[in-house]
């Protein structure tokens, strides 16, 4: 009797654990490469990698360009996100599709598209050379590639956050004597901030990892266009230790970016006594809307 009982219990608990067991393979696929990377090299190897001549210029270039890209995305992307959120018409739907495109188009294709626009033989090529300006294969091109590929992540998240701001709050702000700009900065932005921060972190992470568009549009020149992902690619051919050291730095940076992505929106929501938004950042931006 007791044995049969135990067998039933075992069968039942197995059935209840099935969802968890079914989840393990995917979890392993996601986690194993990163664990392997962390275990791949000794501290000595990492130190040697960090002293390699490719390492410092790539780290510095990635830091500089992604910060400039982030600033450009926020300054130029916020007005677009606000416009998309406040004009629910046919025009804004077309704009939304345009903003979504770089998310679904492969980065390498965006690189070719940038060359067609700003390359020597591109659409604006003659005009740019007449002005004595060259964009392709410069640090400016690195920033352009990062902005084009990453900005949609910020814009979609910010637009989704603005859409959740109650229209009545903005009307009230106006009737209380505030201009449209004042209502935007004092009401819409603070309320959309968690979503904007999450979107900015996501876009920054995407810019940090940008490879395809940068390679095609900006090239791979140490010091001027060789960002960390490109340096990893180059280093793999000569010294794998540099590649691993750079990869670990990128993992650490990405992990840091998860903090604003996950924790900041929850913190802000808690400060105002909950009720609003909850702790989850708006990730609708991923799939477009």
């Amino acid at each position: 009797m007791e044995d049969a009982d135990r067998a039933v219990k075992r069968r039942r608990s197995l059935a209840e654990r099935a969802p968890f067991l079914a989840a393990i393979p995917m979890l392993a696929i996601l986690a194993v490469p990163l664990i392997a990377l962390a275990g791949a090299s000794s501290p000595g190897d990492i130190a040697a990698g960090a002293r390699h001549p490719l390492f410092a210029p790539a780290l510095w270039l990635s830091t500089r360009t992604t910060l400039v890209s982030l600033a450009a995305m926020v300054v130029l992307g916020t007005p677009l996100a606000w416009w998309m959120a406040s004009r629910p018409g046919r025009g804004s739907r077309v704009v939304e599709i345009l903003v979504d495109l770089p998310i679904v188009v492969p980065p390498a294709v965006m690189g070719i598209a940038l060359l067609e626009a700003f390359g020597r033989n591109g659409l604006f090529g003659p005009a740019l050379s007449a002005l004595g300006l060259q964009i392709p294969f410069t640090t400016t091109a690195v920033v352009a590639a990062q902005v084009v590929v990453s900005a949609p992540f910020y814009i979609q998240a910010a637009a989704a956050a603005f859409r959740r701001v109650d229209e009545d709050l903005l009307i009230v702000a106006r009737t209380l004597g505030h201009s449209p700009a004042s209502a935007f900065f004092r009401v819409a932005v603070p309320l959309a901030l968690p979503g904007m921060v999450a979107g900015a972190a996501l876009a920054w992470a995407r810019a940090l990892g940008e490879f395809g568009a940068t390679l095609l549009f900006a090239g791979n020149f140490t010091g001027s266009t060789q960002t960390m992902p490109l340096a990893i690619y180059t280093a793999l051919e000569s010294d794998a230790r540099v590649a691993v050291a750079l990869a670990l730095v990128l993992v650490a940076a990405s992990a840091l970016l998860l903090v604003p992505l996950r924790a900041v929106p929850a913190l802000i929501a808690r400060r105002f006594g909950g009720g609003r938004g909850g702790g989850r950042p708006p990730l609708q931006g991923f799939a477009g809307s």
Binding site: D166, D168, L169, I171, V172, A173, T175, L176, G177, H178, S179, S182, R186, V187, P190, L191, F272, G275, R276
Partner: peptide, 25 residues
Amino acid sequence: YVPQGYGLFPHLPVIDNVAFGLAGG
């Protein structure tokens, strides 16, 4: 204007909600 649901600004404490009408213009 007091909308349905009152339209209080959730990111501001009561005192700053009330003072909001003196903060602009």
